[in-house]
Design a protein around this nucleic acid. Sequence first.
DNA 1: CAAACAAATGAATAGATGTTCATATGTTAA
DNA 2: TTAACATATGAACATCTATTCATTTGTTTG
Lengths: 119, 119
Amino acid sequence: MEQKNVPCCEEEVVHPDAVARVRSQLPEDEVLYDLAELFKIFGDSTRVKILYALLESELCVCDLAGLMDVTQSAVSHQLRVLKSSKLVKFRREGKTVYYSLADEHVVRILSQGMEHIQE
Amino acid sequence: MEQKNVPCCEEEVVHPDAVARVRSQLPEDEVLYDLAELFKIFGDSTRVKILYALLESELCVCDLAGLMDVTQSAVSHQLRVLKSSKLVKFRREGKTVYYSLADEHVVRILSQGMEHIQE
DNA sequence: CAAACAAATGAATAGATGTTCATATGTTAA
DNA sequence: TTAACATATGAACATCTATTCATTTGTTTG
């Protein structure tokens, strides 16, 4: 019950060979960072709900705000995030801006996630 | 330049029909929440890196800590998160705990995400 | 032009999250 | 049992993030 220095693999890993191999196969840090950034977008229920809604139909900001329990402002902020990650696209028609999903990746990512949580 | 009440679709959506249809098709809020929770897990570069590493090889906590620029503690904390979301599994061998990916969903979700950012 | 309204934006705030440090668990071996 | 060590965990802190409110921008129509 005494306290000791617990270095715990400070400069030493347990399986140097495996680690070396993994390191050589690992994508660049920047890529992994970008990937995490992408998933971060999906990691918010407001945004996921927006994406699922757009899966069914093209909608304007007002529609989305009405569909969910959030402000028009909140929806708009989130749409900006989705837009800048190229997950949604939009077209303007008069005062109204219609949003829709950008591509099939979005659908597939959502589906894979859904499969996971439903097993 | 005067300020007005700007209700902006306060009790009114622009396309009630589309909204009604979408609403009827939309998954339960709870499901969407869980889905977002899942993606949140992938939305951190440390965790994504761990997952990618485990894609190549089963590794122990020490190995993972050595592979990345984070503390053993940080890795352990994140492994706990990954574990509780059933994204990784583990087996104990003496003092060492080996972690590996839980199933193919993880791989597929990572792949879909990777595809998206690399186009 | 001015009013009306959908959408976007900036600032502020409250809440969530990841890391670190210190320490506790649990297992092996002397 | 005790030392050593891999792993886990709790608390504290700093950072990030999503929402709201207030306001602005941009478009249409009187």
